[in-house]
């Protein structure tokens, strides 16, 4: 590796920060306790820049960039929040609520849900878009877990953790656009999957109640993510 690492200095919300070679704006922000909202990003699995909540502004350019997928550059002046960005973030969260049937009151993840918390933090008090109300079946064929697509926000965390950490690649997306759906194997019922190791990582990285352990009632599905940094460390150490 590079024996003389390049350090890049830049500012986030006026605070002077520095990044090692290849570090993203989001990573540096987290190191400095600056909060940038995101729903798809999770430390330990790859960044895909798909939820668009972590968009930040490069001062003076009017251009928004995804902080999770943009490497910091020398001299950048990053603005993580202003009227425009906040409005966009609220609208994105509203779009998610309108897309599927997120009914927090009866959700296993009520009180432990990243989407619900995000809405509260951003001040989303109601959804101004007409709800789409799609119809989905709950797949409870797995002995330990279940998936409820009504709660899914298609962030892809489960797909990535299964591929990158567990190495099973049981999950992927089917179709496209508004018809996109997370599947196991050949859109096989989860319980019949030949590749699933039943490790449960997907359940715990899931930001909402879409993936849950069976037998949990409303508000009982707390997610545990402590395993992730440890597994990542072990994996990187093994290289």
């Amino acid at each position: 590796m590079n024996s003389n690492p390049v350090v890049r200095s830049f500012t986030i919300d006026g605070i002077q920060v520095s990044a090692a070679e290849g570090e993203t704006i989001l990573e540096v922000a987290r190191q400095n306790d600056i909060e940038i909202p995101t729903l798809c990003n999770l430390e330990g699995i790859s960044s895909t820049g798909q939820c668009r909540l972590c968009m930040v502004e490069v001062k003076g350019t009017n251009r928004l960039i995804p902080s999770c997928a943009t490497v910091a550059e020398e001299g950048m002046e990053i603005v993580t929040s202003n009227e425009r960005i906040d409005k966009y973030r609220r609208m994105i969260v509203e779009l998610l609520f309108a897309e599927r049937n997120h009914i927090c009151a009866v959700c296993v993840a009520n009180g432990h849900c990243d989407l619900q918390a995000m809405a509260q933090k951003l001040g989303v008090t109601h959804i101004e878009f007409d709800y789409l109300h799609p119809s989905f079946q709950v797949d409870a064929s797995h002995p330990k877990y279940e998936v409820d697509h009504n709660r899914c926000i298609l962030c892809g965390r489960c797909v990535r953790v299964c591929d990158e950490i567990e190495g099973a690649h049981t999950r992927d997306f089917r179709n496209r656009g508004i018809n996109t759906l997370v599947i196991t194997d050949f859109a096989t019922p989860w319980g019949e999957s030949q590749t699933c190791t039943s490790c449960g990582k997907c359940v715990h990285v899931c930001p909402t109640g879409a993936l849950a352990e069976k037998g949990k009632s409303v508000a009982e599905m707390q997610k545990r993510r402590q395993f992730l940094p440890y597994l990542v460390m072990r994996r990187e150490g093994a290289k």
Binding site: D163, A168, H169, T170, R171, D172, F173, R174, N175, R176, I183, T184, D185, F186, A187, T188, Q194, T195
Partner: peptide
Amino acid sequence: SLAYVSGSLNVPPSKVYGVATF
């Protein structure tokens, strides 16, 4: 045929299915 492609090319089933439906 999807199962055959998956098995022959060593590509996970969900990935083959995802590509075919995309």
